[in-house]
Design a protein around this nucleic acid. Structure first.
Ligand SMILES: Nc1ncnc2c1ncn2[C@@H]1O[C@H](COP(=O)(O)OP(=O)(O)OP(=O)(O)O)[C@@H](O)[C@H]1O
Length: 730
DNA sequence: AGGCGGAGTGTTTTT
DNA sequence: CACTCCGCCT
């Protein structure tokens, strides 16, 4: 054993509990994760083979971290493998059991963008009006159904809306099947039904995974819970840890009542509560407790800590987002300059990914390095998706979504006409389009396919087919996957395409290089595993070991922060409407979840917390609330270094500070100032929309954007120089 | 076929 | 603000 990890009495009790259902219920920082990893190593010292122990987490980052922690505590000849996310576990099972399952071994996993395209397609197929039925909503309705283990056949169509969604759901599943693809939720649902209906497999997996450990149990959804029940089966050896107050994935089907369900389903559950916090100062703990106590739950465990009071929580009101970001960066650099801490000890957390932008800009301006977790995902970038789509088509010729994406990238004369013809024609033959392309390529222009598709289109398709045929040959020959990617990139001259495409900037080719490196890094895995790994990881940071963020502040969403801890935490953008998010205003359950999110944020901190919000915030649309988050007022005043305290100390009062900022804005505007042609209140005439009244007119780049309420066409936004507006004379 | 730009719309959070 | 869609032009 490398290093001895200390445990308190209750923790020890959990770690050494007898086989059987164990539920560790405890608040933040009480050592749940530590207990879980210790349980894993404890089982090994008890002589249990590591391969029959399974540890499940929700995120790849959590998995990787836990795997490393366990690995570091066992003899190095033991390799810890079975630590992973629910989704990765299910993907593995489905690939192994492709004979018994409804999907083939070479299925691909569709990410959210692919899923959307397919649902959109399903809506078109059913003539569903996409203005009335929002894609986003339908997508989430279907996803929720899947997380509740409701398949398309059982989907209750008890309202008109559900009738429509039911049809789309059914069609969507059909299309997924046609693409030989699964979405994230299918991974879980399919394994559950596989194990439910196949007793042989069910007992096989009970033998494989005899001891099961689950982290963040409060965030399991029904599918995941059922999966755990099936996997543990008659072993009944489930060791789960969680904290209902940290449940933040309700919108994804998570149901913290699974904690109660667990106790009800396993009456002999050993329940262990941990109430000592090893992370935060007393002030932080008191503040967090005050905030969460407004959510009513039965017997919440009261946490205590041996730590001293610590520093008060600093609350800062900034003028606008830019000012707020500047404040954050300045505060960090001051700490560093005074040798109070290392930049790597700081974390900045926010509600939405979009908020990272202005913070990043502030870091860049200050010339300070930082690390961003998650956010605009590497794999969601256009150039990366393009290349992955090529790879997916090579691997899975049924992947029409990917085919449609890249068949004309770079442009090779296959437009929407030809594409539609190809797809429709393939349908009539009951073939997959790639099959048709390959046959056409073999047979040349005399092919019957050519008659159906036309000369011009066929020529273009053949030129594509020739490339595709060669790549597929490489794949079938067992060529190293990263070399296939290289061939693709070279054959389509993607570098040239990027250079000549003005929508692409300087970084894109670097991203391609990065993708190549990722593939090289996956060297020992087969094609399917690589694509699967990428689909499920979807976050380059986890792969990027060499930039291991030592010494650099980290930026992340509150969701991504769960399970982590930092000496100094900045919770930013705390405006009412951002946190709590305005979309949760009228759902008490969702509001409670927003509060938990804030609670999670507060409890990440070991010693210092900075809260900030801004007086002025113009997010898209209209919800620019300048009010501080309602949750802030739930923190007792004596724990806060309130904004007036703070500002008094720096000898600046609010209004003079704001005036400064306002002035500098005016100065900036002057540089670009051009004359506005229109003013609100003026009546104007437009060629097409007729007459209307100007609501607002403002600068848009070097042009003027006019918002007009037309008498007969409602409110429109027009660009003055293009819209050919004339003033109506009176 | 394909590129461009204007108009419209709205995505919180993640596997 | 940033994305997608549609129509117009080449
Ligand atoms: N018995 C102990 N003695 C000293 N430190 C401990 C002990 N138990 C846990 N810790 C430390 O407390 C901190 C929090 O532990 P851990 O992350 O396991 O808590 P957690 O309950 O999983 O927290 P959260 O729910 O907030 O994710 C860690 O830094 C851990 O090393």
């Amino acid at each position: 054993m490398a290093n001895v990890i200390s445990l308190n009495f209750e923790q020890q009790k959990a770690v050494t509990a007898d086989p059987g259902p164990v539920l560790v219920l405890a608040g933040p920082g009480s050592g749940k994760t530590r207990v879980l990893t210790q349980r894993f190593t404890h089982l090994i010292t008890q002589g249990i083979r590591p391969n029959v122990i399974l540890a499940v987490t929700f995120t790849n980052r959590a998995s990787e971290e836990m795997r490393e922690r366990i690995q570091s505590q066992v003899d190095s000849h033991i390799v810890i493998r079975n630590v992973g996310t629910f989704h990765a576990l299910c993907a593995r099972i489905l690939r192994n059991e492709s004979d018994s399952s409804v999907v083939g071994k070479d299925f691909v996993i569709f990410d959210s963008a692919d899923q959307r395209l397919l649902i959109k397609q399903a809506m078109v197929d059913h003539n569903v009006d996409d203005a009335r039925y929002k894609l986003h909503k339908i997508h989430s309705t279907i996803s929720t159904a899947k997380n509740d283990l409701v398949n398309a056949d059982n989907f209750s169509r008890d309202s008109y809306y559900h009738e429509i969604v039911g049809r789309i759901y059914e069609r969507y599943q059909y299309l997924l099947h046609q693409n030989n693809a699964l979405d994230f939720d299918d991974l879980l649902m399919n394994v559950v039904s596989l194990l439910q209906t196949n007793p042989v497999l069910s007992s096989k997996y009970q033998d494989i995974y005899q001891r099961i450990l689950v982290d963040e149990f409060q965030d399991t959804n029904l599918a995941q819970y059922q999966l755990l029940r099936l996997l543990s089966g008659s072993n009944r050896d489930l060791f789960v840890v969680g904290d209902p107050d940290q449940s933040i994935y309700r919108w994804r089907g998570a149901d913290y009542r699974n904690v109660e369900r667990f106790r009800a389903d396993y009456l002999d559950t050993v329940v262990i509560q941990l109430n000592k916090n090893y992370r935060s100062t007393q002030i932080i703990l008191d503040a967090a407790t005050a905030v969460i106590s407004k959510n009513h739950v039965v017997n919440r465990v009261k946490l205590y800590s041996d730590f001293h009071e610590g520093e008060k929580i600093v609350l800062h009101e900034a003028y606008d987002e830019e000012d707020e970001s500047h404040y954050i960066v300045k505060t960090i650099s001051d700490y560093v300059a005074n040798n109070q801490l290392d930049p790597g000890e700081c974390a900045v957390m926010y509600r939405t990914n979009a908020q990272s932008r202005s913070i990043e800009e502030a870091f860049v301006r200050a010339g300070m390095p930082y690390r961003l977790l998650g956010a605009t995902r590497f794999y969601a970038r256009r150039e990366i998706k393009d290349l992955l789509a090529y790879m997916r088509v090579i691997y899975n010729q049924y992947d029409n979504v990917s085919l449609g994406r890249i068949i004309n990238v770079p442009a090779r004369g296959i437009g929407s006409k030809t594409l539609n013809k190809l797809f429709e024609y393939s349908d009539t033959l009951d073939m997959h389009p790639v099959g048709v392309i390959l046959e056409l390529t073999e047979q040349g222009l005399e092919s019957q396919h050519c008659n159906a598709i036309g000369q011009r289109g066929s020529r273009a398709l053949i030129s594509f087919g020739l490339l595709l045929r060669d790549w597929i040959a490489l794949f079938e020959k067992g060529e190293v996957v990263s070399d296939i990617l290289d061939s693709v990139v070279n054959d389509i001259d993607y570098e040239n395409y990027i250079e000549n495409n003005r929508n692409f900037g300087a970084d894109q080719w670097e991203n391609v290089e990065e993708l190549k490196r990722v593939f090289v890094g996956f060297e020992d895995r087969d094609f399917g595993e690589i694509l699967e790994g990428i689909a499920l990881i979807a976050d380059v940071d986890t792969l990027d070991n060499d930039v291991a963020g030592e010494g650099v502040p980290v930026l992340m969403t509150l969701h991504a922060a769960k399970g982590l801890e930092f000496p100094v935490v900045f919770l930013v953008g705390l405006n009412d409407g951002v946190l709590p998010h305005h979309r949760s205003f009228d759902e008490p359950e969702e509001m409670a979840e927003e509060r938990r999110l804030f609670y999670v944020g507060l409890t990440r901190a070991k010693s210092k917390i900075h809260l900030s919000y801004s007086f002025r915030r113009w997010t898209s649309g209209f919800d620019s609330s300048s009010i501080a988050s309602r949750f802030i007022s739930d923190i007792p005043l004596d724990l806060l270094l309130s904004k007036s305290d703070y500002i008094d100390k720096s000898n600046v009062n609010i209004s003079s500070k704001f005036n400064m900022r306002v002035k500098s804005n005016v100065y900036n505007d002057k540089v670009y100032q051009i004359e506005l042609q229109f003013q609100s209140g003026q009546r104007v005439i437009h060629d097409h929309f007729g007459s209307g009244i100007v609501v607002e007119s403002k600068l848009l780049g070097s042009d003027e954007m006019v918002i007009i309420a037309f008498d007969n066409f409602g409110i429109k936004r027009l660009v003055a120089s293009k819209a050919n507006l004339t003033l109506e004379d009176d």
